[in-house]
């Protein structure tokens, strides 16, 4: 699919843009949203919190929705198409997917849902979830006789 985009430059004849578009859409759905969960995520544990990161390049941070429901973290968002309606740009190669996504992950420890913080930097979302008091490590004092 459009593997030789140079072949279409300079564009003298472009017979099947609509067909290409349909093909791209099929390709996108299969490759992007079925093969592996999207977006890719990491979960790290620190002493007082869990830190979840997600690769969300090109996703407007405003479109991201982070929710904690019990011990499930729900991340939803929208990645806009690279060529918006009304643009004069022609898409010669398309590998990046777009559309809506939702991913849920089970949290391994209880967290304090009210204290969750999220920020987006360089296309990576970082969600910090403070552990619930009962899930934090406790220091046990050793008394000597």
């Amino acid at each position: 699919m459009n593997s030789n985009w140079f072949g279409r430059f300079p564009a003298m004849v472009d017979m099947h843009p609509a067909f290409d578009r349909i093909f791209d859409e099929l390709f996108r759905d299969v490759s992007r949203f079925s093969a592996a969960p999207y977006p890719p995520m990491n979960v790290r544990e620190e002493e007082d919190s869990l830190v979840v990161t997600a690769e969300v390049p090109g996703v407007d941070p405003e479109s991201l929705d982070v929710k904690v429901q019990g011990d499930v973290l729900v991340l939803a968002g929208t990645r806009r198409p690279v060529v918006e309606d009304g643009s004069t740009a022609r898409l010669l190669r398309q590998e990046r997917g777009f559309g809506q996504f939702t991913r849920e992950i089970n949290l391994p420890v209880k967290v304090d849902g009210g204290g969750v913080e999220a920020r987006c930097d360089l296309g990576v979302l970082t969600i910090t979830l403070p552990k619930a008091p009962e899930a934090r490590p406790r220091l046990i004092k050793v008394r000597a006789n």
């Binding site: 390049p57 090109g58 022609r90 010669l92 360089l122």
Partner: peptide, 22 residues
């Protein structure tokens, strides 16, 4: 990296996903 290539009247654009790269 996943890449889109666009053609405009005056230029071409190559867009690559590079999350987390400074």
């Amino acid at each position: 990296p996943r890449t889109d290539v666009l053609e405009f009247d005056d230029r071409m654009e190559i867009k690559l996903d590079v999350p987390g790269v400074a």
